[in-house]
Every structure is written in C-alpha cells, then in structure tokens.
C-alpha cells in the first residue's frame, strides 16, 4: 500500500487500464481479427484470449507474450461445402504468421450460418 501511494493515482489507473486493454486486444488479437474478417467476411466472429489460463505451463515458462492461446468461433459462408479439416486448414493458413511466431494454441469453431440455425 505504501509503495503504491508513491505514485499519483492517475498513473496507476492508466497502467491498470493499459494492461487490461492488452489482454483484450493486443497486436496478435487484432491481427487475427483483421485477417479473419478480411478473408472470411464472417457473419459472426468471436476471439477469446485464453493465454492467462496457460501461463503457468511448463512450455510457457520462458514466454513473456500475453498472446499465446486463443479460441476463435467463426461463422462464415466461406465454409460451405468444406469439411472440418479443410475449414481448420483455411484458418491455420490465414493465420500462418501468427501461428509460427507467437500463437502456441488455437482452438477453432468454424460453422456456416445454416449449420447454426439448424442446431438451435
């Protein structure tokens, strides 16, 4: 408490604000969002950064990036007529740069809007 009070309140809030922003939409998150939006024209796109759940893993011990584990749910007509493997490969291909540099795990849900309406 004493140490914290050395800093004016405004600086503290700014820092907290920034770090929260990072976990919500860091550069990798934004890249994923941009690339999937441009290529797939999705009717729904959900990207969740789950990196904090895995930060204690052995494999992550030397990794400082806060953007290593993501979960994406994409609804797009581009998946029509493609099987699951093809859909996943399409996404992996689009995100090849992120997959080879920063992203350690990417969980994918890829559906067409028709499949969504059928299942509900």
């Amino acid at each position: 408490m004493i140490r914290l009070s050395l800093f004016p309140k405004s600086i503290r809030t700014k820092f907290v604000h920034n770090s929260r922003k990072m976990t919500e939409a860091g550069p990798i998150y934004q890249n994923i969002q941009r690339k999937l939006t441009e290529a797939l024209n999705p009717t729904s796109l959900e990207i969740i950064n789950e990196s904090h759940l895995h930060s204690h893993h052995q494999a992550m011990k030397d990794v400082t990036s806060k953007e290593t584990h993501f979960r994406v749910s994409v609804v797009s007509e581009h998946f029509e007529g493609k099987n699951l493997i093809q859909r996943h490969r399409l996404i992996y291909e689009l995100l090849n740069e992120e997959m080879t540099t920063s992203v350690h795990a990417l969980s994918i849900k890829a559906k067409t809007s028709k499949e969504i309406s059928e299942s509900s």
Binding site: L84, I85, Y92
Partner: peptide
C-alpha cells in the same frame, strides 16, 4: 497441420483436438 495433437485412423488424417 500446425498443431499437436494429431490423429490418424486407418492411414487417414482426422484432425486435432477440436
């Protein structure tokens, strides 16, 4: 396929965890 795990059944690639 850029991730592990990977499953093959009867010589055919099936996919990963998802």
């Amino acid at each position: 396929w850029p991730t592990v795990p990977q499953v093959y059944i009867k010589g055919e690639f099936i996919g990963g965890c998802d």
